[in-house]
């Protein structure tokens, strides 16, 4: 059986964690993988903590439960660290990826977590390249790099094509988004 990678996303309603999980599913799908992307639904309001999930595999995926022992955890909003047990069930050898300006060491301490911690300042990258706070694009790039669910070069080609399609009416934003992706790939840093 091909390796099954399970990812859990923590974000706040309206921030796009669900959209990011669906984007990851889409890029993995485009490279021939079997994928699942699904949020945990509730009556979410803007700003409430939400959870979304991805399963990515080379083989068909039949399991339909939520993910309790993820390989990776992605935290889109670092303020959640204080209120949500984001590393719960995280597999040994797994990693947590946090959107923050802090260093991996600082986050590791805050999480009280012994495994691998990666950080990415998606706000800074987003604001400097796109001129506004859209954390999804840099987060997605960081997640692709750290999880290795698809090769980075394949991802770059696919995401560029997808931006060109998505922004067909405003092609000038495509290079800015690609810059955000490339910076995220370079700037995500880890503490193992």
């Amino acid at each position: 059986m091909g390796k099954l990678v399970e990812i859990r996303w923590h974000g706040r309603g309206g921030q796009g964690a669900k959209t990011a999980s669906l984007l990851l599913a889409e890029v993995a799908f485009n490279t021939g993988k079997y994928i699942q992307g699904f949020p945990e639904y509730g009556p979410e309001r803007m700003g409430a903590p939400i959870t979304a999930y991805n399963r990515i595999s080379d083989e068909p995926i039949t399991i339909h439960s939520n993910i309790y022992e993820p390989d990776y955890v992605v935290v889109v909003d670092e303020t959640l660290i204080k209120s949500v047990p984001v590393t719960a069930g995280l597999k040994e050898g797994g990693a947590v990826i946090v959107n923050t300006a802090k260093s991996p060491e600082e986050i590791k301490k805050e999480l009280n977590f012994n495994g691998k911690v990666y950080t990415i300042d998606a706000r800074k990258i987003s604001e400097e390249t796109l001129g506004a706070y859209f954390p999804n694009t840099p987060m997605l790039a960081a997640v692709v790099k750290i999880t290795g669910v698809i090769p980075v070069d394949v991802f770059l080609n696919d995401i560029e094509a997808s931006f060109k399609h998505k922004f067909a009416n405003k092609p000038h934003v495509v290079p800015k988004n690609m810059e955000a992706v490339k910076r995220a790939l370079e700037e995500v840093k880890g503490n193992e």
Binding site: F29, Q36, F38, P60, H64
Partner: peptide, 12 residues
């Protein structure tokens, strides 16, 4: 088909 589990999950 199952609400949310199937209706709202994206799969192949």
């Amino acid at each position: 088909y199952d609400g949310f589990i199937t209706s709202h999950a994206v799969e192949n």
